[in-house]
Write a protein that binds this DNA or RNA. Structure first.
Lengths: 206, 206
DNA sequence: CTAATAATGTATCGATCGACACAGAAATGA
DNA sequence: TCATTTCTGTGTCGATCGATACATTATTAG
């Protein structure tokens, strides 16, 4: 009686297919990725996609979640495990300078690029991605707050503002990566953002 | 014999219509703006649009040119006329911190947001906008080079890298503006980017 | 006046969009 | 065995995409 694996089993790996969909959304954005693009890359027909994921929008949301897990794991770990907030953020930003031009993946960042502008009917999708960006900023802010607790960040620091600053730099790097700038350029941007840590923190006070 | 104003005259102002189209592309991006959106905002029917502008893509390119002229005039003037490169770039960035949240216009920047990702068939449009961004970076670089000539920027400075840094910050500000952050946040990002002028220039050397 | 030119409004075009109906195939449970 | 369940492949749905055909209207040139 218990629901097990009754019925005809899937002929494709759901996780593999989701990875393929993630790559398409990463390359083309939400609206730029057609169902034909998606089913082609996923190696399945349209009804299989709908049976497994529900709709294009639900597939996108799952793909973004997967992106956050897979592509975000290393930089988040760097951010978390570094001995100071400064080293954590520096490692996080330098990671992105490399990752955004990784030849094995689409350039730039899915969350930064995939839905900055959108048609009126898909506005909820833009909203969703905007919330993902907000969550990323919150991650950086939390690391700065931890730095305040452990003493490597001044207590008077407006950690939210500092987090917004470094996140804005990473967003710009993602756009410029997609534009085709060199890794040297991307790293120069990151180093310029990081060079004046003390002044940046000093300028941002509550 | 000379081609004058023969034939039935237009019943709409081409420039006004182009302004309306610019607003739609600014709000929705290239692919997010449908012909229905455009003709509705422009107050004309589809055949009039095609007669006056040729195609959606040509209309977009004209709209971007108009955007660069209208919205870019003030910040470019600030950048150019300031006594030093530092003051020029500071004024340029602070202008954007204000303009990106102007309640009378769509938030953020058309060139930063309108075509970061796109379907395969419209790739030339993304390329075009990418070239616009490259041109913006070149403007900043030229101002820094002038600073080198006039002595307010060290001769050893990698002006291209510094220009990329400040432009990346402005791109991130545009995305975050669209996300709905406050003007206070946007200004904090700008000030954080500007506070360490000497260190940024010192870090970027040839 | 007439001919030529050009823009307008209506009414679509073929293509593609995201989504799904339906029949057949492949598994399980009784 | 055979009813039940679930996925697959074919085919296509209505809606919308960007773009036009066509007849009409408004203007200028001669």
């Amino acid at each position: 009686m218990l629901v097990g694996k009754r019925g005809r089993p899937r002929t494709f790996d759901r996780t593999v297919a989701l990875h393929r969909a993630m790559d398409v959304f990463w390359q083309r954005g939400y609206e730029g990725a057609s169902m034909t693009d998606l089913t082609g890359a996923m190696g399945i027909a349209s009804p299989s996609l709908y049976a497994a994921f529900g709709s294009k929008e639900k597939l996108f949301r799952e793909a973004v979640s997967l992106y956050n897990e897979v592509e975000g794991r290393v930089p988040q770990q760097v951010l978390r495990d570094a001995p100071t907030a400064r080293e954590g953020i520096a490692g996080w930003l330098r990671h992105h300078a490399r990752a955004y031009l990784d030849p094995a993946r689409p350039t730039g960042c899915l969350v930064a690029l995939a839905a900055t502008t959108i048609s009126a009917e898909n506005e909820p999708v833009r909203q969703f991605v905007a919330e993902c960006r907000q969550a990323d900023v919150a991650d950086i802010k939390r690391r700065l707050d931890r730095g305040v607790e452990s003493g490597d960040v001044p207590a008077s620091t407006d950690t939210a503002a500092v987090a917004e600053y470094f996140y804005a730099v990473s967003l710009g790097m993602a756009v410029r990566a997609r534009d085709g700038v060199s890794g040297r350029t991307l790293h120069a941007i990151a180093e310029a953002a990081l060079v004046a840590w003390d002044q940046v923190l000093d300028a941002a006070r509550d």
